[in-house]
Write a protein that binds this DNA or RNA. Structure first.
Length: 264
DNA sequence: ATGGCAGGTTATACCTGA
């Protein structure tokens, strides 16, 4: 079972890259974020043609939006709302065999890392806190769950190009990292990617469009994550960030993250 | 410390991204 997560930054603009990604990586489930399209305009046909007839959407016009695109039937599809907003940030579904998949697009949080003066940052912290409490209340570490998405937080010092220079930059501030640690602790989630890439190694999944030479400058951040519950830890076969997609023509600023789960 | 780019919108300026 292979699950791929990707902040596509407009699914319509990236449809050819999505086709290429699918052909190369053959995911069973593709989880997209920032689709930026209302559900009635989502380009489902290319995915159906490639063998992915099971599609769940939580989109809206222009902003945010997540999608589950699957070879396998999706059961119990839900589109939860957080912070009272139906803004296309979360889809959940159950795969055949019982694994539950969650696809998240966490609010970016704006510029100023002060919830008292920046509503977007307050929203980000509230969103993570609500989701954390939900998992703690409604699921257990014995449940078989995969959580993926653009979580918009780089937790480790090696998840950013410069820990010191990003301490006050939204995505790597101590308050966000602490919020993410609480989320991780809610079900004792395993960071699947860091299971296979040591924490001592720099690892990024996002490079700003504003850096003209992203590969050489390499000022990235690891904002895209795949977590599994302890029940699925023994099934983890591998996980990796596919950095090469940042070098494709008209790329997203995020690259996909892949996880492989064995029979369980 | 700043600015740099990309995508979308009843656009040609402004919001969002992070």
């Amino acid at each position: 079972m292979r699950i791929v997560t990707w902040n596509v930054n407009s699914v319509r603009l990236r449809i050819n890259a999505a086709r290429r990604l699918i052909r190369q990586f053959q995911p069973d489930v593709l989880c997209l974020q920032e689709t930026k399209v209302a559900d009635e305009h989502f380009p489902t046909a290319p995915f159906v043609k490639l063998g992915y007839p099971h599609i769940a959407l939580a989109g809206q016009k222009a902003y945010h939006g997540v999608a589950l695109i699957s070879r396998l039937p999706l059961g119990n599809v839900e589109r939860p709302t957080w912070c009272g907003r139906r803004d296309g940030r979360h889809l959940m579904a159950t795969l055949p065999g019982g694994i539950e998949v969650h696809n998240f697009y966490v609010p970016a949080g704006g510029d100023l890392p002060d919830p008292a003066r920046n509503d977007k940052f307050a929203h980000k912290l509230d969103f993570v806190a609500e989701v954390t409490d939900w998992f703690a209340a409604h699921r257990t570490p014995a449940d078989r769950i995969v959580l993926v998405g653009d979580l918009n937080i780089a937790p480790l010092e090696t998840d950013v190009w410069s820990h010191k220079q990003l301490l006050r930059v939204v995505s790597h501030t101590p308050v966000e990292v602490a919020a993410m640690a609480r989320w991780r602790a809610s079900l004792d989630w395993v960071d699947a990617v860091r299971k296979f890439t040591p924490e001592s190694e720099k690892l990024y999944s996002w490079w700003s469009y504003r850096s003209p030479n992203w590969a050489k400058a390499d000022k990235g951040r690891r904002l895209d994550h795949i977590w599994v519950t302890p029940a699925l830890d023994p099934a983890l076969l591998g996980a990796e960030v596919v950095a090469k997609l940042r070098g494709w023509a008209t790329p997203s600023d995020h690259v996909p993250v892949v996880v492989d789960l064995g029979a369980d």
